[in-house]
């Protein structure tokens, strides 16, 4: 057994042995657990959008410059990346815009006749536009479907030869 593995073994044994002792001690002043206030969820969601955009950008870049990925299906996949990237950007903007709106900015809230109250501002218009993010999301998923279908048909054709 190597020296490092032996060290790890000792650390695990000591940790398991010390944990009950620590739990039995005074915990009020330890503050081991951190509380999560309300905006954290939004921040995490927005960060998830940014991470998603980064992942899509990477996927686009790799499929664009990888010499072996020359099938037509990859072009559709890259289009999917662009559209979904834009959707993420729009959704990110929509979430941010919503944070600047209050109940007074809506008329007949929670009703099918709901409206954005005048006077219209950039944030209000931006919010109303981002509410229709499916105009990007749905075409993105459609191109993903077409891309996968193209790959599938190509493989079928190869097998039939």
């Amino acid at each position: 057994m190597s020296r490092e593995l032996q060290m790890n073994k000792y650390i695990i044994i000591y940790s398991i042995g010390l944990t009950p002792l620590l739990l039995l001690g005074q915990t009020e002043t330890a503050w081991a657990l951190q509380s999560h206030s309300a905006p954290e969820g939004l921040y995490v969601h927005q960060m998830a959008h940014l991470l998603f955009m980064g992942a899509l950008a990477y996927l686009y870049w790799h499929t664009r410059y990888s010499p072996v990925l020359i099938s037509k299906g990859w072009k559709y996949l890259r289009l999917f990346c662009i559209l979904l990237f834009c959707w993420n950007l729009l959704a990110f903007a929509g979430h941010q815009a919503f944070e600047h709106l209050t109940s007074s900015d809506f008329i007949n809230k929670n009703n099918l006749t709901e409206q954005i109250a005048p006077p219209l501002s950039f944030v209000k218009v931006l919010y109303s536009v981002t509410k229709m993010d499916h105009f990007l999301n749905v075409p993105a998923l459609l191109t993903l479907t077409i891309s996968l279908r193209t790959f599938y048909l190509e493989v079928l054709k190869e097998d039939s030869l």
Binding site: L112, E114, I116, V125, S128
Partner: peptide, 10 residues
């Protein structure tokens, strides 16, 4: 200035 309906977006 008129209000902006949200029904199409919904």
């Amino acid at each position: 200035m008129t209000a902006l309906p949200l029904l199409p977006a919904v």
